[in-house]
Design a protein around this nucleic acid. Structure first.
Lengths: 67, 67
DNA sequence: ATATTATATACCATATCGGGTATAATGTCA
DNA sequence: TGACATTATACCCGATATGGTATATAATAT
């Protein structure tokens, strides 16, 4: 699983939201939220950032191992 | 400019590569490389990661301010 | 200023993402 | 076990990103 997918899934659950609720609140489509959390590689960056911004984050370059 | 665009541009120049050379080596299209470095938001994450991986990086969730 | 190289912008074609919906699979709890 | 909620997978279709190419602009050097 990629770091962004894990991050979103983890944070969403911590917030006590279902994928559907999260999709609603973020303005993203449910299908996209599912794809994202599933680790789909070909998602669009702007949508990814919309999701991340729900938790005050954005996509940045980082080391593969996350260190 | 977004952090990923800046990162790629900076690293590419440090490596002494033109956009064209970088596109060749990474297998990405020249047009994509240009769009990415220009900060286009709607690029695809898989391509973004292909570019980042040229420098041993991947997209990860990070704070907006980069701290 | 001119020549050369690098980067930016525009157009067209094809591939594919995203939304919506339906269905299947998985998880959770009494 | 069954009932319910949540998540995963599949389909269609409209919108758009990507690649290729050509052209314009910018930067660099002589």
């Amino acid at each position: 699983m990629n770091p962004i997918a894990e991050f979103v899934k983890k944070r969403r659950k911590e917030a006590g939201l279902t994928q559907e609720e999260f999709a609603m609140r973020s303005g993203l489509g449910l299908r996209f939220v599912r794809d994202l959390e599933q680790g789909k590689e070909t998602v669009r960056m702007d949508k990814v950032n919309t999701a991340l911004e729900m938790f005050g984050a954005v996509a940045v370059p980082g080391r593969k191992d996350g260190r």
